[in-house]
Design a protein around this nucleic acid. Sequence first.
DNA 1: AAAGATTGAGTTGTCAATCTTA
DNA 2: TAAGATTGACAACTCAATCTTT
Lengths: 158, 158
Amino acid sequence: MPAAQPSDAQRVHELMMDLVRSAGLLQPDNHVPGQPVSVSQAFALHELGMSGGGLSQGELAERLRLEKSSASRMAADLERDGLLVRERDPDNRRQYRLRLTERGHALHERMAASYHGHYERWIDAMTPAERAALVRGLRALLRAVRDWRDASRSGVND
Amino acid sequence: MPAAQPSDAQRVHELMMDLVRSAGLLQPDNHVPGQPVSVSQAFALHELGMSGGGLSQGELAERLRLEKSSASRMAADLERDGLLVRERDPDNRRQYRLRLTERGHALHERMAASYHGHYERWIDAMTPAERAALVRGLRALLRAVRDWRDASRSGVND
DNA sequence: AAAGATTGAGTTGTCAATCTTA
DNA sequence: TAAGATTGACAACTCAATCTTT
């Protein structure tokens, strides 16, 4: 593994920051444009919508890489807003089962369609070679991020 | 501009979501392990250490892509901790000139030696071809996102 | 005791309004 | 008036301590 030029990391960092800003994605408290939820909440709706229901708060936290306390507060907020219900699991009353309400499902559908539309428009505006490069680069970056994170967890980087 | 495969948009969408989650980008990340400063503060020390001193708070905010109010509070904290001094610019007393103290410089040196930013570690773990692909793809995507956003602003997409 | 969820205190960001100097 | 910095109110994380159920 050859050492990266410092400027490569810098370049990618700036590109990612610019991308996130231009796409309006990731100001911590910022909302999904035109939707009444935050980015984290949008991700939560997506996880719950995809997983057929029945996630516990701990599982949700793990999937979103959040602390369980953050997941707890977020789930409470989403319940207050009528987007999900928290039912105690009858078989193990320590954990919740989080399920989207009708409204939660509808919002997820709407947002998924909107996001997907954005990506289609953006990708459409790229050449095939650029698309291939993007997919290749993102896959490699994702692998690197995951490997590093997993190595960190097991103490190799400490 | 040829039409994208529907699966290209989907693939990129999923990769971006995975990346946001795996990189922990939903968290305003905390402390540099083993050092008495936060990640943002570490970046600030780096900017100040590299730029020969004399940055204003506004310039610092711009480089770190923070709000000027965040930069203001961070500079106050760093001054309280004895890592920098804020001198009013005698030629324009509206702005500060931020300069690292001895301690600030020492800490920057120590961290530069031992700490690489996440992006540097990640990019290091990629091959040169993957890095090139990533930069190319991200640039193209960023361009597409910006073009679309600008077109939206002028009402074309609404 | 252990697992899952909650609460309390602290950190670091945002935005909007305000103060100060040019 | 405008530029640069500050302050206040708030959001969404974190960690540590605690409550509840098994």
